[in-house]
């Protein structure tokens, strides 16, 4: 039973639909259809846990989409499926029209937790991806240094992660991801561990960099302010388990934006109120369930 549940559906679809059938339609950067993720029960008397159920979500080419939802609702699960790190129990993922199998090589991923290799310097961490892609050492180093400079860390190339502040580590992580020039950027609450000033600074810098080459971004956060100030579109997820999108809002605040100023505009306040009305219900639901349930993941 479990075996069939955990079969990788995307291998089937890869065989089934060859040719340009899907690519002729406007190829979204990412297209998730009917994604369900069920995790096997941790012990014999526990139930299997379905983190997300029947999720349809898509990310246009060059679009910035924020996914908001109560903490622990399975937002990260969706990103992991999109990244190809996690095989969905059911459903299909396509990347620029091609079914995804294995790691999503078009995507860069910025994790919520510390993900730099502690035994490599800032330079070593940034050039790591290039070296693994077969770029020669000298060129990799040069490109890494250029990116470190771009994220404002010139002069810190030889530092180890332990010798950098939280904000600096996030910058290294950003450079580490962007140096590979991914077309899709997956971000899992990347700035949630930072203090508010550093965070807003990083958000503005992210917007600057994004507007330069318009990558497609999936940005997961539980912070509505962050979601509205950054994104073109905000997707609200329901409380877990069995999370799915419950509402979608277009953010038509003109760009370029400044996240520190945007929060005072009436347009922003109106959007915030409308989205919060829906998000609040889910947060409360999640809170109620949290009181009776053992948290999973």
């Amino acid at each position: 039973m479990l075996r069939t549940l955990h079969e990788r559906p995307r291998t089937r679809s890869a065989k089934g639909r060859t040719g340009g059938f899907f690519t002729t339609m406007s190829a979204a950067a990412l297209d998730l259809r009917g994604i369900t993720c069920t995790f096997p029960a941790p012990s014999r008397d526990a139930e299997p846990y379905t983190a997300v159920r029947d999720v349809d979500i898509s990310l246009g080419d060059g679009e910035f989409v924020a996914i908001v939802g109560p903490t622990g609702c399975g937002k990260s699960t969706i990103l992991n499926v999109a990244a190809g790190l996690l095989a969905a129990t059911a459903g299909e993922v396509s990347v620029f029209g091609t079914p995804l199998a294995g790691i999503n090589s078009h995507a860069g991923y910025m994790f919520q937790a510390e993900a730099l290799l502690p035994w490599l310097t800032a330079r070593g961490n940034v050039s790591l991806g290039l070296e693994m892609h077969g770029v020669a050492r000298a060129e990799a180093t040069q490109r890494a240094d250029a990116w470190l400079e771009r994220v404002g860390l010139a002069g810190f190339e030889e530092r180890y992660p332990k010798q950098l502040s939280g904000g600096m580590k996030k910058r290294v992580a950003l450079a580490q991801t962007l140096v590979l020039e991914p077309r899709i950027l997956l971000m899992d609450e990347p700035f949630s561990a930072l203090d508010i000033q550093t965070r807003q600074l990083m958000e503005n810098e992210l917007l600057d960099m994004w507007s330069a080459d318009r990558k497609s971004v999936f940005f997961v956060t539980h912070d509505l302010e962050e979601a509205i100030s950054l994104a073109d579109r905000v997707v609200v997820m329901s409380a877990g388990p069995g999370t799915k999108p419950v509402a979608e809002f277009k953010v038509d605040i003109p760009r370029p934006r400044d996240v520190t100023e945007i929060v005072q505009s009436p347009h922003y306040l109106d959007l915030h109120r409308r989205i919060w009305e829906i998000l609040k219900k889910e947060v409360l639901k999640s809170y109620e369930r949290g009181k009776t349930m053992v948290p999973v993941g």
């Binding site: 994790f111 993900a115 991801t177």
Partner: peptide
């Protein structure tokens, strides 16, 4: 840490 592994894999590690 599984995050380190996931990160390395996303950066192209076999």
């Amino acid at each position: 840490s599984p995050v380190l592994i996931a990160n390395a894999r996303m950066l192209g590690a076999r």
